[in-house]
Simulated assay, not measured.
Amino acid sequence: MYIGQLHLVTDLEDGDRAYPEANVSYEIESIDDSSLNTTVAYVERRGNRLIARGYNGRDYAVSGVDGYELYAVRKPPQR
C-alpha cells in the first residue's frame, strides 16, 4: 500500500507498512507548522496509531490528536 492511500488507521493491519509513491516524498511538520527537516521512509501501524519513520531514524505519530502532520512533496521526474 502507498502512503497516499491511507485514510484511516484501520487501512493497515497492525505491523503493516505503507511506502511513498513513485515521484512523491513525504515530510513531517509539527502542529505549530515548524518543519522537522526529515523525509518519511514509511508509515507503519502500531496498535491504534500510525507511525511515520523518518530517514533521520526517529518515529513520529501521524494519527491521533497529538500527531504530527504528514504532507506530500511531488518530485519532478528524472530526465
Rank of each mutant, 00 (worst) to 15 (best):
residue 15 G to I: 03
residue 36 L to D: 03
residue 12 L to S: 02
residue 63 S to N: 01
residue 7 H to Y: 11
residue 17 R to H: 07
residue 51 I to T: 05
residue 68 Y to I: 06
residue 60 Y to N: 06
residue 44 E to F: 01
residue 43 V to E: 02
residue 65 V to S: 13
residue 17 R to M: 07
residue 37 N to Q: 10
residue 13 E to S: 14
residue 15 G to K: 04
residue 9 V to T: 08
residue 20 P to N: 03
residue 15 G to W: 02
residue 25 S to K: 13
residue 60 Y to K: 03
residue 23 N to G: 08
residue 52 A to W: 01
residue 29 E to F: 12
residue 13 E to F: 10
residue 54 G to L: 07
residue 41 A to Q: 09
residue 78 Q to W: 08
residue 46 R to M: 11
residue 54 G to M: 07
residue 29 E to K: 13
residue 10 T to S: 13
residue 38 T to V: 00
residue 62 V to I: 13
residue 56 N to S: 05
residue 75 K to L: 03
residue 27 E to N: 10
residue 31 I to T: 11
residue 11 D to E: 07
residue 19 Y to C: 03
residue 47 G to F: 00
residue 74 R to K: 13
residue 69 E to S: 14
residue 55 Y to L: 12
residue 1 M to L: 06
residue 43 V to K: 00
residue 39 T to I: 12
residue 76 P to H: 05
residue 14 D to R: 07
residue 5 Q to N: 13
residue 46 R to Q: 14
residue 7 H to I: 09
residue 72 A to W: 05
residue 34 S to E: 15
residue 52 A to S: 09
residue 17 R to V: 01
residue 53 R to I: 10
residue 17 R to K: 12
residue 69 E to N: 15
residue 79 R to L: 06
residue 25 S to E: 15
residue 31 I to S: 10
residue 6 L to G: 01
residue 9 V to W: 05
residue 20 P to M: 00
residue 17 R to W: 02
residue 14 D to E: 10
residue 30 S to V: 09
residue 4 G to I: 11
residue 54 G to N: 08
residue 27 E to I: 03
residue 50 L to G: 01
residue 26 Y to C: 02
residue 37 N to F: 08
residue 14 D to L: 07
residue 24 V to E: 04
residue 8 L to S: 12
residue 16 D to P: 11
residue 47 G to T: 00
residue 42 Y to V: 02
residue 41 A to H: 07
residue 10 T to D: 14
residue 40 V to Y: 00
residue 21 E to F: 04
residue 33 D to G: 14
residue 50 L to A: 07
residue 62 V to Q: 07
residue 61 A to K: 13
residue 39 T to F: 09
residue 27 E to D: 08
residue 71 Y to D: 09
residue 29 E to W: 11
residue 32 D to V: 02
residue 50 L to I: 06
residue 8 L to W: 11
residue 18 A to Q: 04
residue 25 S to D: 15
residue 31 I to V: 12
residue 36 L to P: 05
residue 30 S to R: 15
residue 32 D to A: 01
residue 70 L to T: 06
residue 26 Y to A: 02
residue 77 P to S: 02
residue 29 E to D: 15
residue 21 E to I: 06
residue 1 M to E: 07
residue 64 G to N: 04
residue 56 N to I: 04
residue 72 A to F: 04
residue 10 T to K: 11
residue 44 E to H: 01
residue 33 D to S: 14
residue 9 V to L: 02
residue 33 D to A: 13
residue 61 A to S: 15
residue 24 V to K: 02
residue 36 L to R: 02
residue 57 G to N: 06
residue 22 A to H: 09
residue 29 E to P: 14
residue 39 T to L: 08
residue 41 A to D: 12
residue 13 E to I: 08
residue 3 I to V: 01
residue 37 N to Y: 10
residue 75 K to E: 06
residue 72 A to N: 09
residue 14 D to C: 09
residue 78 Q to M: 08
residue 58 R to K: 13
residue 20 P to H: 00
residue 51 I to P: 06
residue 20 P to W: 01
residue 23 N to A: 07
residue 58 R to I: 08
